[in-house]
Amino acid sequence: MRALTALAAVTAIAGCVAAFPIDRPSDYTAESKLGTCRVDLPRDWKDRLSRDTTEVGSHEKVTVVGADADAGTTLVRTTRNRTTELVLHDHGKRQQVMAVQNDGQLFGVEFDGRWVTFSTSPSPGDTTTTTYAWDSRNDGAPVPIGASGAVLHNGKAAWADQAGVHVYDLAKKKDRVVGRGGKPVFLGDAVLWLQDGKFRSEGALPVQLSNARPSDSVASDGRTVVWAQDDELRGWRDGWAEPRELAAIRPVPRTEGIVFPRVSGDFVSWQSESSYVTDIRSGATVHTTEGAYWLEVHGGALTRQGWRVAAAAPLSELSPLKAC
């Protein structure tokens, strides 16, 4: 088995580390490490992704990196002829957001249906990060807002740097620092972040999260917050009496653990050498054994990436995963 590293870009800023998923080898697939309920990829998922597939050339790479709530508008990162573009596809309309000279220079893309945030670096050998915001309603240039990768929700971006945890109102162009720590996420209109291995909040922290001990792998869609804790993927949303175990991996052999979770509605995608998608409702998880078949949720879409193919299917049209 190939030795893999879990990070493609690691940016150290005042002791904070921002990590981004890497592209695995085009023919790579890993054995399942799942220790909880595993189900096969449903036929309707595969059929739906096949209907919305973008075939690409032998010297081209296309990855869907963002989507709005109904997956009708997507953000696509395309690399060809040594140039990488971030492009918005909106029901047949195409808008270029930015172009860079190397695929690794553009990362951390987020989209809330209107605003786009993303990060760039000057070159593959220079890890200096600049984070931009772009308003899809106006055909203007992206505007730099910070120097650390951001998360995005309802027109507000959040990130952490030496000064602390920032919350930036994109429409008003107003920035404020709400605390010290890292890995901010939005939960409703509130911002949570990690400090000393615990969740913190500018206001009252939900009591159900007070005993959580998350690793650096945290994500939220504004309604549900999920995190890795030891070898478990855990989650909580308003109305739950306590956090729940959503999935777990076997502790041995030890590799990268649970990393890069993304949550949208009732689905969570995450990585542990290869890709997994968990249904919060049933606790069932899909792990694909096909080479180059990587699944990830972005906004209202389930996206597929792999060798010479990219696809996005609306989550609302996918069947639930049945419990084991």
Rank of each mutant, 00 (worst) to 15 (best):
A12E: 14
T54E: 12
T120Q: 02
V252R: 14
A241F: 01
D47E: 15
S215T: 15
S269K: 06
W294C: 02
A150Q: 04
H153P: 02
T128L: 06
S123D: 13
V116G: 05
P251G: 10
L302I: 07
G104A: 12
M98P: 00
R254F: 11
A19C: 07
L315D: 01
A12Q: 12
G66K: 00
L187V: 13
A8L: 04
V277M: 08
I258S: 07
D139V: 08
S264C: 06
V87K: 09
R244H: 15
W270F: 15
E60I: 03
A219K: 05
L75E: 03
A292Q: 11
P21D: 12
T278P: 04
L88C: 03
V177D: 05
I258A: 07
V97T: 05
A157V: 08
K46M: 08
L86D: 04
D112G: 00
K174V: 13
E296I: 00
T11F: 11
G306K: 10
Y293P: 02
V62R: 15
S50M: 06
S316M: 02
A171E: 14
D23S: 12
E256M: 11
Q96V: 14
W193Y: 14
A247L: 08
A284I: 08
P124E: 03
P42N: 08
T63I: 13
V56A: 15
T73D: 00
R82Y: 08
I258L: 15
Q208V: 09
L295V: 04
S319V: 09
E232S: 13
S123M: 05
A14F: 05
P253A: 04
E242H: 13
L192S: 01
Y28E: 07
P21H: 10
R94N: 07
L7S: 12
L4S: 06
H287Q: 15
R137V: 01
V39H: 06
M1K: 10
R114H: 09
L88W: 03
G149T: 15
A150D: 03
V268H: 09
Y293S: 03
G35T: 01
N154I: 00
T278G: 03
Y132L: 08
T129H: 02
E31W: 04
S272D: 13
R180D: 13
A160Y: 05
P320A: 02
V309Q: 14
T29L: 02
N154Q: 15
S210G: 12
A12C: 02
R213M: 11
Y132M: 09
E317G: 08
V64F: 12
T224Y: 07
K93F: 04
T11G: 10
V39K: 11
E242M: 11
G66S: 03
G155S: 07
D27H: 12
V143Y: 02
T84G: 08
A190W: 01
P144C: 10
N211S: 15
V143T: 14
L209G: 06
G235S: 14
A3P: 00
V62H: 13
T5V: 12
G197W: 10
